[in-house]
Amino acid sequence: MILVFRLGFLAFLLLLWALAAQQMGGNVVPSPKATYLAAGRMLGEGRLIRALGDSLTVFLSGYALAIAVGVPMGILMGGFRVLGKTLEVYVYALAATPRVAFIPLIIVMLGLGVEAKMFIVFLGALMPVLINTYAGVLAADDELIEMAQSVGAGRMRVFRRIVLPGAVPFVIVGMRLGATIGLINTVVAELYTSVKGLGGLLAIYGNTFRMAEYFVVVLMLSLIGVVVTESLRYLEQRASRWRIVK
């Protein structure tokens, strides 16, 4: 049912798009058809796929690194209160600083290549993952912890069987936020460092006013966003099967 509504809305959006193209002219807003044809051309040249591959490599490796670092660090900070209390101020400060501010520094340190791009993505995705994991560990249910203690569980077992599973929904929310920011940072990185990937195409087509191709790239980015967040939503549902499904 919801799928029908979604497709209906998609048709509505396409209509709006077509109208906008008609009103403003194909040089500003390309028609859906022109965009479709451009997509065919770009796919034929192999250019789109190559750019997609570059971008995904940057995004996925930076994002994976953010999870690999953010989750354990959040767990450690939540598990050892002194560590958490010590570091949290700095984590929040870093999270509040616009990450773009670090880009010149990163370029100086890592150059313009893949490493620099990965690091920019990593830095963006890390904070939501880390902060949410930390919050999830801290949000542990004191009543359940006391119950586990009464059953004879020591600190380690309370942590493993009550605190960590309780934090899972928080971690997944953090991963979802991290994915969005990571995707944004992928494009930002490709615009600010060596021009490559989808972000690179965006710059090239935008600067040369090839709007049909430009639109193809934008749509591609939205598509990646949808695929990534939907897979995480699926993961979230899998992880919380125990909630009442209405």
Binding site: V151, G152, R161, W242
Partner: peptide, 16 residues
């Protein structure tokens, strides 16, 4: 605390 003493809490405290 342990298996020698059972505790039924005021709130159920089941693991969801």
């Amino acid at each position: 605390p342990g298996p020698d003493i059972g505790f039924v809490f005021q709130s159920f405290r089941l693991i969801p």
